[in-house]
Amino acid sequence: MMRRVLVFLAVAGLAAALLPLALGTGVPEAPGALATAYLEDAPGDFGAANVVTAIVVSYRGFDTLGEVAVLFAATAGVGALLTRKRLGIGDAEPADKPAATEILVTATGLLTGLLVMFGVYIFLHGHLTPGGGFQGGVVIATALLLGLLARPESKLSHGILSAVESLSGAAYVGMGLAGAFLAWGFLDPRVLPLGRIGSLVSAGSIPVIYSLIGLKVGAELSGILDALKGDRE
């Protein structure tokens, strides 16, 4: 009995403590000072029609570089853990996997190119429309997932994947350094002309950086999917 009363009191106390928080929630009437500054300055500063992208790639570019690094670490970890040796499969050939159904095989053949094309569209238009490198990369990885499901026996070329991944990662850091030396700071997109807002070639190096992120994310997620098949050497 005593215990129940104590538990009840504890819950009631917690609720009372959190009450002001609950009452104070709601959508603010106007954006705060920092958000206002972003909204007003982004078009003039970087010429990006999509303010979110200007924030993600430029104002908070360091944060995005960190996210890309986190994804890289995750990929490396998955790749190192899910090998045949660690999974205890050894050199034994896995039993014959059932062939995929014709629905999947036919649809995959038609869709792979279109999906990758859509991914490329998303990351190339990151500074104009919603979306960007991460989203485009995920769409590209979806195309590779379809391919792996349709042809379970196929193997991705790790050489090409790691080449795409490391080259685009290095180029990303290179673009950042170019910003530090040629413009005002690390990852500053104003190393390239800003162009006219809303056209494909605008917003300085933002589209270049987002395309590099898209390629890198696509290659990394494809690598994870391939490792999850569990037949890596």
């Binding site: 995959t108 053949g109 038609l110 792979t112 190119g113 990758v116 391919g147």
Partner: peptide
């Protein structure tokens, strides 16, 4: 890259 799968 993909014409081999697109058209059998």
């Amino acid at each position: 890259l993909t014409y081999r799968f697109f058209l059998d």
